[in-house]
Design a protein around this nucleic acid. Sequence first.
DNA 1: AGCGGAACCTGTCGGC
DNA 2: TGCCGACAGGTTCCGC
Length: 272
Amino acid sequence: MPELPEVETIVRELDAALPGRRIRRVQVFRADALGGVPVARFRAALEGRTFRHVRRQGKFLLFELEPPGYLIGHLRMTGKFAVSPPLPKPLPYHRVWFELEDGALLVFQDMRCFGTLAVVERLRDYAPLAALGVDPFSRHFTAHWLAEALAASRTPLKHWLMDQSKVAGLGNIYVAEILYDARLSPLRTANTLIAAEVERLYRAVRRILRKAIHKSGTTIRDFRRVDQKTGQFQNFLRVYGKAGQPCPSCRTPIARVVQQQRSTFYCPTCQR
DNA sequence: AGCGGAACCTGTCGGC
DNA sequence: TGCCGACAGGTTCCGC
């Protein structure tokens, strides 16, 4: 489900709600997300600690704690965080409750149980973060860096952009929209782009992500903000999920192909 | 290096 | 109505 704009939306809303609030009690209703960490250890690591700040790296949510440490979350396909008033019992798909001192709940829910939660004392202790590439909103993401990185790979553009060890935060929806905006085929080999094409791609990454964040992300099925409202970027999609519909620019039907076992949508006329 | 396939788990939708 | 396959915003692992 969530890509960078959805995670950014959630993180901004959690950062407005959580700092200064203390975790009184943690309840785990289904432990899949803990990656084998015993429930007792997970609870002990969190209970009594206070949220200081919530931010994002790629698609990971980083909850900074006091005494110092981090709760790290990844929503994968159907994970969600919500802030809720006290509840008598967990709703369907509620996996973990972080009960705050006033009784309010930070709820982690996840229908498909792919999402992950971890507690670490230092961010560098967490290997999945160390494996991430450049975040599109970090100062390291430049057209120059992008040109050099693309030049080193013979993989198709779609696959390259989805690789979190290269650029961190893009997924199936936004890669499709970015490549449409940049007028580049998802099938192009990364190292065949000329300088002007790299520049178009660089600008498209920033433009599409900025606009999607401005629209609070994309709700196609079940993405919800912390307050359960939907995102709005689905109203601005040009190609994702639009197989057979006319390209907004040239009216050629949008094509759907499968790459890396994932659907790819693009305009065969506009994107070369 | 790069690719294809399977796996993790649960639900929805369309076709017959 | 019921069953079955395809598909879903993500990631990892394994073999060639």
